[in-house]
Simulated scan of single mutants.
Amino acid sequence: MNPPTRLFVDPPQPAQPPEVLEPGALVLRGFALDQAADLLRAVGQVAAQAPLRHLVTPGGLGMSVAMTNCGALGWVSDRSGYRYDPIDPDSGQPWPAMPARLRQLAGDAAQAAGYPGFVPDACLVNRYAPGTRLSLHQDRDEGNYAHPIVSVSLGIAAMFLWGGAQRADKARRMALMHGDVVVWGGPARLRFHGVLPLPDGSHPLTGAHRINLTFRKAG
């Protein structure tokens, strides 16, 4: 018999000091918690214009995580490779504009982590279902690594992997809860990272899913 589905409810969280993963990389616990409902409404508006989809890797495999984009550029993957493109390949139209609420949160989180003046031009929206995962990888398609990555977790808690400069380096595991934000840049900008398979569960705002927002400066 399968174990009962867990319901994640988020109690009010006091402000917590940043957790330093290593120089240049921090976890801001609960940073987006107060704004979560508004952020998810904004994500819903984006997905209504550019629906979530399962991209195909250059090797021809379908990605288990569903995704879409907003902002001037969107990250895409197909048989020709990984890249940023101003046009949604499914619609032939520009990606939806990045909602001001999302852009502001990304800038505020970067500021809190020691990266002032961050103005993202791309927001990747990833939707995890139970069992989906993200293998260890680097965010290197941007070309310019002077800007940080801001990653926001919403919904079901996930086990985040924080690796080293090489894929084979041992990775730390840490739970990312609803409202947590991870920011990395500088000497940590090209660290490998990933997500273990999402557990079964349900969250009041996202149901059986985790939503991850990843903000980048790609242009």
Rank of each mutant, 00 (worst) to 15 (best):
residue 4 P to V: 10
residue 10 D to K: 12
residue 11 P to A: 13
residue 13 Q to N: 05
residue 13 Q to A: 11
residue 15 A to T: 12
residue 21 L to W: 15
residue 22 E to R: 14
residue 25 A to C: 11
residue 32 A to D: 06
residue 36 A to P: 02
residue 36 A to S: 15
residue 36 A to R: 11
residue 47 A to C: 15
residue 48 A to I: 00
residue 51 P to C: 10
residue 55 L to Y: 14
residue 57 T to H: 12
residue 60 G to H: 11
residue 61 L to W: 12
residue 62 G to Q: 15
residue 67 M to R: 09
residue 68 T to A: 03
residue 69 N to I: 03
residue 70 C to K: 02
residue 71 G to I: 11
residue 72 A to Y: 00
residue 76 V to F: 15
residue 77 S to V: 06
residue 78 D to A: 15
residue 81 G to F: 11
residue 82 Y to Q: 04
residue 85 D to H: 10
residue 89 P to S: 08
residue 96 P to Q: 10
residue 96 P to T: 02
residue 98 M to R: 05
residue 98 M to D: 09
residue 100 A to D: 14
residue 101 R to N: 07
residue 103 R to Y: 06
residue 110 A to G: 05
residue 113 A to N: 04
residue 114 G to L: 15
residue 114 G to W: 15
residue 117 G to D: 12
residue 119 V to G: 08
residue 121 D to R: 09
residue 127 R to P: 00
residue 132 T to N: 11
residue 141 D to S: 10
residue 146 A to S: 15
residue 146 A to I: 06
residue 147 H to S: 10
residue 151 S to I: 09
residue 160 F to P: 00
residue 163 G to V: 07
residue 164 G to F: 10
residue 169 D to Q: 14
residue 170 K to C: 08
residue 174 M to Y: 03
residue 183 V to I: 14
residue 184 W to L: 14
residue 187 P to F: 12
residue 188 A to Y: 02
residue 189 R to H: 07
residue 189 R to T: 05
residue 192 F to C: 11
residue 196 L to I: 00
residue 200 D to K: 14
residue 204 P to K: 09
residue 204 P to S: 05
residue 205 L to Y: 02
residue 205 L to A: 06
residue 210 R to H: 04
residue 212 N to K: 01
